[in-house]
C-alpha cells in the first residue's frame, strides 16, 4: 500500500531559471498538496504535460528529495521528512530514464553490485538475476560493457538492476521514454506481470494511450495539482468524453480557467 498525503514541493528559482521560465516569481510550486493512494496489485498512472510535477512527485515518493509538506506512507511504515529514508528505499524501486548505468561495467557486474548495496546474499542475487535477465533477454549481453549496449539494451539492464531487490513498490517515471516499440512492449508487459504478482506500481507518463491501456487508475496532474483521480471509465464518465485525450483536454482547460492562466 502506498499513500501520498498532501505533498508540496517548492523550488526556488535562480534569476536565470526565472528568465527561462518567463516569470517574476522566485518560487515555483512543483507539487501542490498532491494526494493519492495505490493498492497492491494496482498500476496507478500520473498523467500530465511536461513540467506538471509528475517527476517531482515521484522523486518525493522515492525519497530522492524531501517534500516541504506532506507525507508518504508505505505499508504500515510512515515515511516523512524526518524519517529514515535509507530503510524506505529498501522496499521500493525508482526507475527513470534519468538513472544511468556506469559505462565501464557489465550488466552482470552492476546487478551484483546493486544487489550487495541492497544487502542481499549471493544466493538471492543469483536467483533474482536469473529471473530478470531471462525476462528481459539480458543473458546475451550480460558480460558486455554498458558503453557498448544499444539504448534499448541499456534500458532493459537498468530496469532489471533496479528490481534486483524484488521491491513491493515500483515507481516508474516515463517507462517507455526513448524506447523502441518492441522494448516498450516488453516493459509494459512486465509491469502488468508485476501487478499480477501483487506489486504496487506508480508510473508517470504524458502518453495518453499508455495511461489508458496500462493503468488501473489515473491521476491527472496539471501545474502541480491533482485535478482528477479515477479509473479510465470514471474519468470518461465524469468528463462526458469518449477517450482519455479528450477528457484530459477538458480537465486541462478547466484547470487553467480555475488558475486564471493562459491555455
Amino acid at each position: 500500500m502506498l499513500k501520498v498525503e498532501n505533498i508540496t514541493k517548492i523550488y526556488r528559482l535562480s534569476k536565470k531559471q526565472m528568465r527561462l521560465e518567463n516569470t517574476n516569481e522566485s518560487k515555483k510550486i512543483a507539487a501542490n498538496k498532491v494526494s493519492f493512494d495505490v493498492k497492491p496489485g494496482e498500476i496507478f498512472g500520473l498523467l500530465g504535460p511536461n513540467g506538471a510535477g509528475k517527476t517531482t512527485t515521484l522523486r518525493c515518493i522515492s525519497t530522492l528529495i524531501k517534500p516541504d509538506e506532506g507525507d508518504v506512507l508505505i505499508g504500515k511504515d510512515r515515511i516523512s521528512v524526518i524519517r529514515d529514508d535509507d530503510k524506505a528505499r529498501g522496499s521500493l524501486s525508482f526507475l527513470t530514464s534519468e538513472l544511468k548505468l556506469e559505462d565501464h561495467f557489465t550488466p552482470n557486474y552492476l546487478f551484483n553490485f546493486f544487489g550487495n548495496l541492497h544487502g542481499l546474499d549471493d544466493e538471492t542475487i543469483e536467483r533474482n538475476k536469473k529471473k530478470l535477465f531471462e525476462k528481459f533477454g539480458i543473458d546475451e549481453f550480460a558480460e558486455v560493457k554498458v558503453s557498448q549496449l544499444s539504448t534499448g539494451m541499456k534500458q532493459k539492464a537498468s530496469i532489471a538492476i533496479s528490481l534486483v531487490h524484488d521491491p513491493d513498490i515500483i515507481i516508474f517515471d516515463e517507462p517507455t521514454n526513448g524506447l523502441d516499440v518492441l522494448t516498450a512492449r516488453t516493459v509494459t508487459d512486465y509491469l502488468e506481470e508485476l501487478r499480477n504478482e501483487g506489486k504496487t506500481i506508480v508510473v508517470s507518463t504524458h502518453i495518453m494511450t499508455l495511461a489508458a491501456k496500462l493503468c488501473d487508475r489515473i491521476g491527472i496532474i496539471i501545474d502541480g495539482k491533482i485535478r482528477k483521480v479515477g479509473s479510465l471509465k470514471e474519468i470518461l464518465s465524469e468528463t462526458e468524453t469518449d477517450d482519455l485525450e479528450d477528457a484530459f483536454f477538458k480537465i486541462f482547460k478547466k484547470a487553467k480557467e480555475e488558475d486564471g492562466g493562459v491555455i
Binding site: 530522492l64 535509507d86 528505499r89 529498501g90 538513472l99 544511468k100 548505468l101 556506469e102 546493486f114 548495496l117
Partner: peptide, 17 residues
C-alpha cells in the same frame, strides 16, 4: 562525472546511507 552521466542518482535510490 557520475552526476554528469546520471549514474550517481542510481546509487542514491539504493538503501545505502
Amino acid at each position: 562525472g557520475e552526476k554528469e552521466r546520471g549514474t550517481i542518482a542510481t546509487l542514491l535510490v539504493t538503501p545505502i546511507k
